[in-house]
Amino acid sequence: MDRTVREIHADFAHRAGYIGSGVGVAVMDTGIIKHKDFDHRILVFRDFCEQKQYPYDDNGHGTHVSGIIGGNGSASRGRYRGIAPGCNLIVLKALDRYGNGNTKEVLEATEWMIENKERYNIRILNISVGMLPSAKKEEKERLIAAMERAWNHGIVVVAAAGNNGPDAGSVTIPGILKTIITVGSSDDEGLPAKQHGLMPGYSGRGPTDQCIVKPEILAPGTNIISCSAGGKLYEMKSGTSMATPVVTGAIAVLLSAHPRLRPAEVKLILHDSAVPTALKGKKKAWGKLDVARMLLKSRPFS
């Protein structure tokens, strides 16, 4: 995370005092443990899989994602600090120990989030649930409708592009949805990807069936060190599931600076501040995330 924070210039925001304080981030994933880096900021844990009352993570994915978003790095003396170390976490366990989920649990988690949006100041949803285009039409439509409903209720939905690249049209659902923000990995090529069992160029790519450019934004997603739910404090993971919380954390930072921004305004700022990449046309996206540029481009909205 130390490398990632510097690479996207989140350290600029941190020095300016913008760390996501007070912003509620819903993380729909495999759960979370009470890691030292989350201190008292796990406001809610809701288990839609086993209905357990206490925070747990029987896979580790959700804890790692949450650390990227909002870990404060206290167990590493700040080295593995997340992008928005002051944000609050609302953790919705909708994925099981294998990282799989079903539409029913995702929909239940989404409805609970919308109903409790004001209570916990939920401004962002980070979702790594992904269906392939080959999924049943009804299931796809229900998931897409749920994410669109969340967006229309003022929640910025940030979804992973999936790890099925490099072929065109490989973005997973709900990442194909025009409204929401879809994230790809900016560093998905070469040996590091292979070391994690991923194909070089793994990041899902558009266009969608509606000829929409996806993903919109790219962020580091390979060899990301963050909080572990296992026997050690931190571990390394790779994938667009890691790039997505980088963007989610950046949006939490932005909303701590400008709390009144609406989802569409957040998306416009992301567009205007993205750094063009020199990827020889292999990836169609706005560009790469830059937090310092985000804050500078947000001034007309303040």
Results as ranks from 00 to 15, higher is better:
M1V: 02
D2I: 03
A16Y: 09
G17Q: 11
Y18C: 04
V23P: 03
V23R: 02
V25D: 00
K34S: 14
H40G: 09
H40N: 13
R46V: 13
E50Y: 10
Y54E: 15
N59R: 10
H61Q: 15
H64F: 06
V65Q: 08
S66H: 01
A75T: 03
R79H: 01
G86E: 12
G86W: 03
L92S: 09
A94N: 00
D96F: 07
Y98W: 13
Y98H: 14
T103D: 12
T103S: 13
E105A: 12
I114M: 13
E115W: 08
N121I: 05
I124H: 00
N126R: 08
I127P: 00
K137N: 10
K137G: 06
W151E: 01
N152W: 09
H153S: 14
H153G: 09
A160V: 07
G162K: 07
P174H: 09
I176T: 15
V183T: 07
S186N: 11
E189F: 08
E189D: 10
P192M: 04
K194F: 10
Q195T: 12
M199A: 07
R205S: 08
K214D: 07
P220Q: 02
G221N: 07
T222C: 00
I224W: 07
I225R: 03
G230F: 10
Y234G: 09
T248H: 08
G249Q: 06
G249I: 02
S256Y: 04
V275T: 12
V275R: 11
T277N: 05
A278M: 10
K280I: 11
A285K: 05
K288I: 01
L289I: 11
L296Q: 09
S302R: 11
